[in-house]
Write a protein that binds this DNA or RNA. Structure first.
Lengths: 233, 233
DNA sequence: CACGTTAATATGTGCATGCATATTATCTTT
DNA sequence: AAAGATAATATGCATGCACATATTAACGTG
């Protein structure tokens, strides 16, 4: 038995992981209580708890009070992806970033968003169209709606120097958000803006952020051809 | 000062969050040490530690030994997305799932994967082409390479009844993986297979999983038109 | 003054313990 | 026997303490 260092919580986590991987404990099976494991590893229950909590967080085991801990039947395949600020993403590629504001207007809430941005908001929505460049080549096209009820200060901002994204990140922290990714064919407009041929498959990301119950902003980002969003599990 | 319940670690986390959101502590600024906070909240240092650890995990604060804790300058926008087993995803939509194995062959490692599946593997790679259906309509097209050095048992499997994905999830747990998403235009083959017109923008997901240093499998999933991958922040 | 050594300090983590809480099993009561 | 009250139990969480470790600041020596 290749013993890992079993008196650190990470060590214990590794050992538990090994037992799950090696099917010492089958999927769905119950594993010993914290107290027993603590005794086996010769450590405090707190330490085992820490390890189990961590495994539960990553979805590998399911814990319920009184019911005990069991190995997850279908270990959900979770990936955490970091959505960077576009400027940083571009600069990380070693390219110079620039953005240009194509349009800034006060618009009625588009029908698509009536469900989230309550229709009662009337005209109080700021609409922004921005193009992000990497080394002077179009990188992503952004359409954004900002809820002025939630973020009235946005009215004063031109968003010409610093992008709306960065400003909002720093000034209107959100508590939760919905995110979705899709593929779409470039229409005439986006093809022109992103400098590609019509019909090209483009990667799109849509996001709505909220603070509490109030929507802050809706963004749709359409990336230039060839974009890949990467992540690790 | 709207006081939250400050003698639970979650309560303390909320209060700290509030101070960050309300800019009591500006981005980049140092926040008091655990000991001071513990005294202020009248709780044990451990409890404050727990709260701070959690905030650090979600990227809102940066912690360094001796250097202290400071509010993150650019709170990274992290999203955890769960990659479901296709069958479950389809069934969750209330549709009936079916898959069909289009091809099963032992192939040399494709050049694209030489970097990961070491070329020395020679022919020991199982290649699978699978089509997943939802209510008898194509849902996703899957191309997969399985490293038979790592998972020799796969040689015995036909993968006609249970899909390779499910079998691998249960029989070859991975320790890490690379994931990427992109958009592509349907070529003649994929258009035929997914029953759409050539050129349609399709959402694709690529994934390589490893156990330790040994690659297990590479999958490329191309979804039928209209697919959206959703997540929450 | 440059550079390596040492001390101070903030977080990281372990331990023993006790109580809280959710959930299940068991024991009543009707 | 069905329904409701009660006890048992496994995890969740807080406490106080001690020591480990990384990092910075201060110090001292050539």
């Amino acid at each position: 038995m290749a013993l890992t260092d079993t008196n650190s919580w990470t060590g214990i986590r590794e050992e538990l992981l090994r037992r799950i991987h090696d099917r010492v404990w089958e999927p769905g099976a119950q594993i010993p209580h914290e107290a027993d494991l603590a005794e086996e590893f010769g450590c405090a229950r707190t330490t085992v708890n820490r390890a189990l909590r961590d495994l539960a967080e990553s979805g590998l085991v399911i814990r319920k009070r009184r019911a005990g801990t069991r190995v997850a039947l279908n270990p959900p395949q979770r990936a955490t992806l970091t959505i960077p600020i576009i400027r940083e993403e571009v600069e990380a590629l070693g390219k110079t970033y620039r953005h240009s504001l194509l349009e800034r207007a006060y618009q009625p809430v588009p029908p698509m968003l009536h469900g989230v941005f309550h229709a009662s908001l009337g005209e109080d929505v700021l609409y922004l169209k921005t193009l992000h460049f990497a080394d002077e080549r179009p990188y992503a096209f952004e359409e954004r709606h900002i809820n002025l009820d939630t973020v009235p200060e946005a009215r004063q901002r031109k968003f010409e120097v610093s992008s709306a994204n960065e400003w909002l990140v720093h000034n209107a922290p959100y508590s939760r958000g919905d995110l979705s990714f899709s593929a779409l064919n470039a229409n005439e407009d986006t093809a022109r803006i992103l400098d590609c041929t019509q019909g090209t498959a483009l990667f799109a990301m849509e996001r709505i952020t909220w603070t509490g119950d109030a929507p802050i902003t809706h963004v749709k980002l359409i990336f230039a051809p060839g974009y890949r969003m990467r992540s690790t599990i």
